[in-house]
Amino acid sequence: MGKSISLQLKDGTRIGAYVAEPAGTPKAGLVVVQEIFGVNAHIRSVADRYAAQGYLAIAPALFDPVQPGVELGYDQEGMTKGLEYVGKLGFDRALAGVEAAAQEVQRAGKVATVGYCWGGTVSYLSAIRLGLPAISYYGGRNVQFVGEQAKAPLMFHYGLKDAHIGEADREAVRKANPTAEFHVYDADHGFNCDARGSYDAASAKLAMERSLAFLAKHVG
């Protein structure tokens, strides 16, 4: 359904991206922000699903500046490598990739972001620093940025059984963003990903419905 393209960042660096086009005129643009496992088959399928709902979806390969073409599996080796790339990249360069991707799809109209895991925090930061409406799925590092004010609408999805994100962290994020839509599910970290053991179909379906309603309201 999708195709691979190249994006140029402000500093001249080039990164790859996966683009999924909707069948008709796009409702809006959507940047799909990867987990620590890269733009793998799951992230491409997420972009495809949003394209099927009418959005011009793009998943930038944010790790490309430190390691091109990353596609990791959901195992210990994948997690170790992914965390290493996250550490090397930093959030500023991740946001530069999101910004370039947003510019690429703004021909579709307004642009929002949706991110998962580490990408959930990058998505949250996109609302703070780029002013893009953002959906954050189980962003474990969200709590690091509660001191900064978001400049766009936000939606958060969290799993109650998520060992990576405790209630105190969730509540700190909620308190810092009183106007955000905030949803908690009886599910684990990564509940949206059908390639993971923690996948929860009912929670994933409900979160997707809520996310689509959020996008319809804020970007079209």
Rank of each mutant, 00 (worst) to 15 (best):
S6R: 13
L7E: 05
I15F: 04
I15L: 13
A17E: 00
Y18D: 00
A20M: 00
E21P: 00
P26M: 10
E35F: 02
G38R: 05
N40W: 05
N40C: 11
A41N: 15
H42C: 01
H42R: 09
R44K: 15
D48F: 02
D48V: 13
Y50R: 12
A52E: 13
L56V: 08
A57E: 05
A59V: 10
D64N: 04
V66F: 02
G69C: 07
E71H: 04
L72F: 04
G73C: 02
Q76I: 10
E84Y: 06
L89F: 08
G90N: 07
D92H: 08
G97H: 02
Q103G: 15
E104D: 00
V105Y: 03
Q106L: 10
A108H: 10
T113Y: 00
W118K: 03
G119Q: 11
G120F: 02
T121I: 12
T121Y: 04
L125R: 07
R129M: 04
L132M: 11
Y138C: 00
V143A: 13
Q144H: 09
F145C: 03
F145Y: 14
F145D: 01
V146W: 07
Q149I: 13
L154S: 05
F156V: 09
F156M: 13
F156E: 05
L160F: 03
A168E: 15
D169E: 15
D169L: 06
A172F: 03
R174G: 02
K175M: 09
A176L: 11
N177F: 07
E181L: 14
E181Q: 14
E181G: 05
H183E: 02
A187I: 07
D188T: 04
A195V: 03
G197H: 00
D200N: 15
K205L: 05
K205G: 01
F214V: 12
F214E: 01
A216R: 12
